[in-house]
Computed example of a mutant assay.
Amino acid sequence: MAIEALRDALQQRKTTPSELMTFAAIDRVTRRMEPLIKAMQ
């Protein structure tokens, strides 16, 4: 479900990959998020 939400947010241009990575770094989940975000671009 979370992956679908990421995909929808990127497709609808509600957020950018750089914004997502900023929050991933804050939450310390960069290693898990980076491959997902790159695959969705």
Rank of each mutant, 00 (worst) to 15 (best):
D27W: 09
F23I: 15
R13G: 07
T16M: 03
E4L: 13
E19C: 01
D8N: 07
F23N: 12
T16F: 00
R28Q: 11
A39R: 15
D8R: 13
L10M: 03
L36G: 01
R32L: 11
T22G: 06
S18I: 00
R31F: 07
E19Q: 09
D27C: 06
K14S: 06
R28M: 05
A5I: 15
F23H: 12
P17T: 02
A24Q: 03
L20M: 09
R32N: 12
V29H: 01
K38V: 11
L6M: 15
K38Y: 01
T22C: 02
D27L: 05
K38E: 10
L20H: 01
L10P: 04
F23K: 06
L20Q: 00
D8K: 12
E19L: 10
R7K: 14
I3S: 10
L6R: 11
M1C: 08
Q11T: 06
L6N: 06
L6F: 13
T30Q: 08
Q41V: 11
Q41L: 12
M40R: 14
M21A: 02
Q41P: 02
I37D: 03
I37C: 01
R28P: 03
A5Q: 14
D8H: 05
K14C: 04
K14H: 07
S18V: 01
R13M: 07
D27S: 07
Q11M: 09
M40G: 03
A24R: 03
E4W: 07
P17A: 02
L10E: 00
E34T: 10
A5V: 15
S18G: 08
P35L: 02
Q41T: 15
D27G: 05
M1Q: 13
L20C: 01
E4N: 11
I37M: 05
L10C: 03
E4I: 13
Q12A: 12
Q11F: 09
